[in-house]
Amino acid sequence: MRLIQLLLLLIVIAACDSSEETVEEKNWYKGNLHTHSYWSDGDDYPEMIMDWYKSHGYDFAVLSDHNVLARQEKWKLIPKSPTHKKALDKYLAKFGEEWVEYREDSAGRVEVRLKKLEEYRGLFEEDGKFLIIESEEITAGFEKKPLHMNVTNIQEFIAPQGGSSVPEILQNNLDEVKEQREATGEPMFLHINHPNFGWAITPEDIMQLNGERFFEVYNGHPYVNNYGDSLRPSMEVLWDKVQVAYLQAGKPLLYGLAVDDAHHYHVFNEKSSNPGRGWVVVRSAELAPAALVEAMEAGDFYASTGVSLEKLDFDGRTLSLKIEEEEGVDYTVQFFGTRTSSPEMYGELFKEVEGSQAEYTMQKEDMYVRAKIVSNKLKENPYKPGDTEVAWTQPVRMEQ
């Protein structure tokens, strides 16, 4: 009997150890989910862009060009400008004449064949170190309003869907992604890009959607109006307003992404849309598309423009975090949420903590809570002059 009890005890201990190992095996992976190349309106070659992200410490990246997947034959006519000539020279210097295919016509114009994803993927991908995820920026419009949506881990091209209103167009494209996901069995998601670009998408538009889980709380393009204006909300205000409407309607939480939306890789300044401005950091069991998508759908990630977290936990009631400190940098942690007793006061500041560690224990009335970490370190090549490095955790709800 004692031997059986001992064996059972050992089995329980082994199971606990295995469970702990599973948790410990999860790693943080840094990635960008919105970037452009010569395949649409970016100004550099796919290989040069992937080389930039990999060499700058990213673990995964996408090329999300407008209404196209890098799968067919495409030749790019290179504009006659010093910037574009320099870009071709750098491309040739990096990858060589045997790799780069180009031709010149009788008028002296140069065309370069753009490499397909499957051609250059092997140059960069390494198990557990760097991953390229296929993506498309579905680009539609309604009454001159730009309606842009990225599909992460897309499997087949999706043509932009139309409709008779902004919400209908967004929903029709959401439904296309859902249909492809169900048909292929591959996890993927659509997120709403830069709602304030062209003041195209309002909180009320997003409130009407079914199945939308992600939007860009921060986009590095200089013309997307992240901070709103005197008449229209900032992305953070939009986030909280939609969040309340979603939860009141019994919908899942809405999560916020930070992205580059990079188009320009040669001139770095406040008027250009450059890489390195915003990213997500995902806690995942492996560096693989399905695992990353599933982790993000569980809210197990944060968005950042420079602040890194050493610890981020939610035990069902208390949200706690620890910042990876930089010497000489000060931090303020702000916990925002909304109470059931006053839903009109969406995005209320519940608590503010100075320092590198903070926690907030949810109260019964709290619909959700999210944290924003603000540093006093100026952002290098910022979205707007004077911006400091920040990070946003995803909203959480108290477990009943």
Rank of each mutant, 00 (worst) to 15 (best):
A291Y: 07
S308R: 12
P343A: 03
S320T: 07
Y265V: 09
A288M: 06
M345Y: 07
G347A: 10
S308H: 02
T305C: 08
F335P: 11
S356H: 10
A358C: 07
E297R: 13
S272L: 06
A288T: 03
L312W: 05
T338M: 14
E270K: 10
P343S: 05
R277T: 06
D330E: 09
A303M: 02
G278S: 10
L312Y: 09
A262Y: 07
Q334D: 15
V280I: 07
F268A: 08
D261H: 05
F268T: 10
Y331N: 01
L292G: 14
M296A: 04
Q357R: 10
N269P: 01
T340N: 11
L349W: 12
D260E: 12
S273A: 13
D300Q: 10
A290Y: 05
A295H: 04
E354S: 12
A303C: 02
G328E: 03
E359I: 09
E297H: 11
Y331L: 02
F268I: 14
V333T: 07
F336M: 09
P343K: 04
K311I: 01
Y331K: 00
L319R: 12
A291N: 08
L312N: 02
S320Q: 06
I323E: 08
H266E: 14
E344Q: 08
A303T: 05
W279T: 00
